[in-house]
Write a protein that binds this DNA or RNA. Structure first.
Lengths: 264, 264
DNA sequence: ACAAACTCTGTACACTGTAGAGAGAACAGG
DNA sequence: CCTGTTCTCTCTACAGTGTACAGAGTTTGT
């Protein structure tokens, strides 16, 4: 992968025009066979079913019945295509039902995003440093901010809370999604993989089981409780609830650790 | 990138033997020019300075003064090399000074990891679904568990808290690291990029500023306060503190949202 | 009719990971 | 010592990648 995973490079004007679907009107030359929308749809389909690595310009063009280089008529480079795909997928998210409990709203938004990442695992492999400045990505951000608006946070705190929840959701979803992907690609469940690995580990004297007593104990407990090495959805919901507990304390002004200084 | 970012595929025995440095003793044939350790060191150096995309087998071999295919004598594939690199880097983490406040310990561990991800940004591009079963990765996990041991959590809660903190750290570090990487690659700071994009957005009638009032207001506030579009370290510390507040409530049994049911 | 503007295609380049075959080196047993 | 085994290392080759560039063909404005 010697090319960009995403933009933030590239001509901002062209990228933004593509994202918002405003076309410089070309009124000469042959009728285009495709539209940008079709290309994005096909690309998302390919990425969903075969992974982002399978989404090559050649494969995409093949699926659309067109020569590879033809796509460059519509899109400056693969990076911009990824921007368009991300913004399109953000459009799958919708406004949550109104609620007077901000916790409920934030939870719904987080779970919606969690599900979106599972429907489109490749999203989490894209660079998120500079989000595409498209309508749906903006709408997502606005929705998230409005969920914590007027609950007693400063502007800066609102910003931080949204960023924190997003970071958490993405971090947890990545683990979940990758683990599911590995099962598919390797044909081995996590448990089978562990069962294949554990005996080998046991043969290695340096890897004395006594060295990592907690890991052994907790691993055992978690495995028995979940029937798997991990239970991502459970952990996600548990963690989100803790985070919201923490935010709630901030709102009500009872943060237990607020006065604690960090050493160093 | 048509190849695996990481293992979990591949012969577990061979991978584990490599990770723990136990060598099947070959006592015939020419003396090896290299060691696995040298290869891993060179690979990490390359990935640190030029990014994971620059770490090709050919580049690595070149740096070591050896032909590309020679590396396959030491390592079954690039995926295993990535495993080895990850475990090696996990070895940079150390035990935190003893403390009787678990919050302090967890905070130090999280900040250490945060820094590690910034030293080695490529870590966050590796698949984390199945961590390498190497000594340092185990030690990291054991350390994290022991930070929340005997503070009043069940085994399952310990597991979930560690997973949640790790997910959070990784999610936030990814944003931070990628934004820094984009600055380097594109030669444009976030602010410059935004300044180049905003006027274009303003020209687009569909992107009416009134559509996203909160995003506009908060963006403004955050920009003024931080002198940048985002302040990752600040957000990271803020979020971590909220998370630990939430965990603390769980420990002391005063979770405000614990009895709330999730709709749907 | 002509030129401009546009879409689309084929070729080409510099890359990627790694399979496979074979050359040469070091040791074990005789 | 010689010979066979086992190991390291190299070369070649293949099927991919994104996309620069040149040119062919089509539609429209004048």
């Amino acid at each position: 992968m010697t090319y960009a995973d995403h933009t933030g490079t590239g001509d901002p004007r062209r990228t933004i025009e593509l994202l918002w679907g405003v076309r410089g009107k070309p009124r000469r030359g042959p009728k285009p066979k495709l539209t940008v929308e079709e290309i994005v749809t096909a690309a998302i389909g390919l990425a969903d079913s075969e992974g982002i690595a399978a989404l090559s310009v050649r494969r995409g063009a093949e699926q659309l019945g067109v020569s590879p280089m033809s796509l460059y008529t519509y899109i400056p480079s693969r990076a911009e295509l990824l921007d368009l795909m991300m913004d399109r997928v953000h459009g799958e998210l919708t406004d949550p039902p109104p609620s007077d409990e901000w916790r409920v709203t934030v939870t719904i938004l987080a779970e919606d995003a969690w599900e979106m990442y599972h429907r489109h695992p490749w999203l989490l492999q894209l660079t998120t440093g500079r989000l595409p400045l498209g309508p749906h990505t903006f709408a997502k951000h606005e929705r998230e901010l409005s969920a914590v608006d007027a609950i007693g946070l400063t502007d800066l705190e609102m910003d931080a809370v949204v960023a924190m929840v997003n970071g958490f959701v993405q971090g947890m979803a990545r683990g979940s999604v990758e683990s599911a992907g590995l099962v598919r690609r390797s044909g081995m469940t996590d448990v089978e993989w562990w069962n294949a690995s554990a005996p080998v580990l046991a043969e290695i004297p340096e890897a004395d089981a006594g060295l990592f007593p907690l890991a052994a104990r907790i691993g055992q407990s978690a495995g028995e409780a979940h029937g798997a090495a991990s239970a991502p959805l459970h952990t996600f919901r548990f963690g989100l609830a803790r985070i919201l507990d923490g935010v709630e304390q901030l709102v009500t002004g009872e943060a237990p650790g607020a006065d604690r200084e960090l050493p160093s």
